[in-house]
Design a protein around this nucleic acid. Structure first.
Lengths: 341, 341
DNA sequence: ACGATACGTTTCGCCCTGCGAAATCGCCGC
DNA sequence: GCGGCGATTTCGCAGGGCGAAACGTATCGT
C-alpha cells in the first residue's frame, strides 16, 4: 500500500527520491538531518555519476534544458495521445505555435517516428517509437521498482543492498546502496558478476526461476568447459536448490562460505513477477556483527518486507509497461478521437 | 512471405510506400505510369494532410529537420540500447560530442525520461518513455500493417478499401483508399461511425470478436436507450452473427441492404490477432458493377488474400510491440552491457 | 600514499539554427 | 467560384545551441 499506486505515479518516483537526497547525504555524513534555511546556498556539492557519494543533487543544472527537444517530445507525446493527430489538435493540447508543431513533426518524420498521409488524414506514430522504449523493460524497470525500498532498507538496517539480474552464466550487479551505507566494505560492486553456483544471488535465482529455464541454464553450464560442473557438483547443486525451494516463498539463499570475503556473508532473495525471477536482491554484512540467532529478525525479516514492496511495484510497472493493445473497458472509446459525433 | 519480415523492417515500410507515391498519383490521374526524366523538376505538387489527393510526397520539406531534436532522440535510443549508459558509451555509439550528450541527457532528465545516479552508475530510461509509445498499439499499428496491402488491393480491384476499429458502440473508419480509387463514390468516409448492427464492418466485428466481449457489447446496446434494440432485434442479430461465424474463418459480412447508399454494397472481414478482432476491413462497390456470381472471384477472394497479408503483418508487429521483458534466448546476455569481463 | 590516467562535467564566446507572426495555399461546402 | 478553415511556407531577427578547451573528481597501478 505504501508502494506505487499507479504507473502514472512513477513519473514522480524520482522526484520523491530527489527530495530525499539531502537527507541521504546527511545520513552518509553522519549529520543529524536537521533542516537548514533553504535560502542559504548549500555548499555546491555537485555529484557525478561516477562519484561514490550519495545521490545526484537535482538542483544545479549547468545546461538549461534544450527548448526544441522538450517541444519535440511534447509533440510526440501529443501524437501518441491523439492516435491520429491533426496540427490543430496538437496545437490545442500543447499550445505550441503551429509552425513549431509542423517543424517538429517534419523532424520526427525524417527520423521515421511519425508518419503522415491523407488516407488516414493526420499524423500517427510508427513502430519506430519502440526504439525509444525498448530498453526500459529489464534492469531499468527493476531499478525503478527497487530504488526507494532498497534505500529505505539500507537506512534501516545500515548494511548495503545489491540488486542483480541474470547475465549469461552469472548474475550482474546493477544497483548497490553502498554509497549510503555507513559500513560499506568496498568501493563498488557494480558490474561484478557473481557466480550462479556459489553466490547468494545466483543461488536465489536458480532456485526460484521456472524449471524450464533452470534446466536450460544447467545444460549450458554442463556443456561449457569453462565451468567445472561435473555430475557430482550438479547433483549437490540441485539438492541445494530444491532444499531452498522447499522453504517456500519466503526462502533466501546464502553465499557459499568458502568464497571471499570470508569475514562477511551475503543473503539473497529473488524478485519475482508471475513465475519469473526478474532480479535478485541481496544484503551483505560482517558475520561477527550479526549473531546467528539475530539474523532472522535483523536481516531476513526486513529484507523479506522490502522484497514484498518491490514485487508490488514490479507488478504495477509490468502492468503499465505491457499495456494491452485493446483496452477492456466497458465499451472502449478513444482509439479514435477523431470521431465527429 | 511478401509481407514484413521483421519489426525492424517496418521503419522502411513508409519509405517503400513513399517510393510508390508517384505511381499512385499517376494512377489517380489516369496517366500511364511512364517514367519521366528524374532531373526534370516535377510540378511541385505539394500534398497536405487534408488533401484528398493520393500520398504525401516525401520530397519537399520546407523545414530542415531540427538538429538538436535528432540528436536528443539519438541519445535516447542509445540509452535504450545500453540499458545503463555512461557518457562515454553513448559517445562511442553516437559519435556526438560529449557536451552535447550531457546537454541532451539533462534535457531528457528534466522531462523525466531518463534518470541518473551513482547507485547504478550511469543513466537509464524511466517508465516515462512509455508516453512516447503508448499511442502506437491500436489504430496506428493497424494502419501500419494494412497500408501496403490495402493500397495494393485498391490498385488491383479499383474499389476503395476502408479500415475501421471499434469505437464505443460503433465502428470508426480510420483509413480509406478512396483517394487512389478511380470510382470513389464520396469525398471521404474518414471518421464516419458505421453502426455495429447494420454495417458490414460492425457485423464482421461482432461476429468474430471473443464471446465475452460480444456479450458485453450487446448488454450495453440493450441498456442504452439510444438504440432500439428490443428482444426480437437482438435475437435476429444473434442469429445473423452465428450464421456468419458458421461460414468459418473465411467468412465476410455484408451491409444491411436497407441502409444508404442503396446502389452500393459493402463487404467486410475482421482483422484478427489471436482471438481478438483488432480492426475490420471493407470494400464498397456499385451493385450493378459486379454481378452477383462474380462477387466471390472479384471481391471476396482478393479481399481474403489481403486480409491474410495484413494479419501476417499484425502478428509480426504485435510480437515486436509487446517484447517480452526477459528474452528467452540460450543464455541471455545483454541486459547488462556494463559487465567488465 | 601518490601520481598518472580516465572520465564526467562545466565554461564561454561565437554563430547559426530555430523561432513564430504573417502570408499563402488548397480543400471543402455552399 | 466564393468564403472559411486548416495546413503549410516565408523570412528576417536574435537567442539558443554548439563544442573546444578547461576543470574536478574518481580510479588504478605501483
Amino acid at each position: 500500500m505504501e508502494g506505487l499506486r499507479h504507473p502514472e505515479d512513477m513519473a514522480n518516483l524520482d522526484q520523491v527520491l530527489a527530495a530525499r537526497a539531502a537527507s541521504d547525504n546527511a545520513l552518509r555524513q553522519g549529520k543529524p538531518s536537521q533542516e537548514k534555511p533553504s535560502q542559504e546556498k548549500p555548499p555546491a556539492q555537485r555529484c557525478r555519476t561516477n562519484s561514490r557519494r550519495g545521490l545526484s543533487d537535482p538542483g544545479k543544472r549547468s545546461y538549461p534544458p534544450v527548448q526544441s527537444v522538450k517541444r519535440a517530445l511534447e509533440v510526440l507525446r501529443a501524437v501518441n495521445r491523439l492516435r491520429i493527430a491533426s496540427v490543430t489538435a496538437i496545437h490545442a493540447t500543447t499550445h505550441l505555435p503551429k509552425p513549431t508543431i509542423i517543424r517538429m513533426l517534419e523532424t520526427l518524420m525524417a527520423d521515421g517516428y511519425v508518419a503522415r498521409d491523407n488516407m488516414f488524414g493526420g499524423y500517427r506514430v510508427t513502430c519506430r517509437v519502440h526504439e525509444l522504449t525498448k530498453g526500459y523493460d529489464g534492469i531499468s524497470m527493476v531499478i525503478e521498482a527497487s530504488r526507494v525500498p532498497a534505500i529505505e532498507l539500507t537506512q534501516r538496517i545500515k548494511w548495503p543492498i545489491g540488486i542483480g539480474v541474470l547475465d549469461g552464466d552469472a548474475i550482474s550487479i546493477q544497483f548497490w546502496t553502498g554509497a549510503i551505507s555507513p559500513w560499506a566494505h568496498t568501493n563498488t560492486v557494480l558490474g561484478l558478476r557473481p557466480t550462479l553456483l556459489s553466490s547468494a544471488m545466483g543461488r536465489a535465482y536458480m532456485a526460484y526461476c521456472p524449471e524450464e529455464e533452470r534446466e536450460k541454464i544447467l545444460a549450458c553450464l554442463r556443456d561449457d568447459p569453462h565451468h567445472e560442473f561435473d555430475a557430482q557438483t550438479e547433483a549437490d547443486f540441485r539438492q541445494l536448490l530444491s532444499r531452498l525451494r522447499s522453504t517456500g516463498k519466503a526462502g533466501f539463499a546464502v553465499r557459499d562460505p568458502r568464497t571471499e570475503p570470508k569475514q562477511m556473508t551475503t543473503l539473497a532473495m529473488p524478485l519475482m513477477f508471475d513465475d519469473r525471477v526478474l532480479a535478485t536482491i541481496s544484503v551483505s554484512f560482517y558475520k561477527t556483527a550479526v549473531p546467528l540467532q539475530n539474523i532472522s529478525a535483523q536481516i531476513v525479516a526486513p529484507l523479506g518486507e522490502t522484497r514484498r514492496k518491490i514485487e508490488e511495484n514490479l507488478a504495477l510497472l509490468m502492468r503499465g509497461a505491457g499495456a494491452p493493445p485493446v483496452e477492456a473497458g466497458r465499451l472502449p472509446t478513444g482509439l479514435a478521437p477523431l470521431s465527429p459525433g
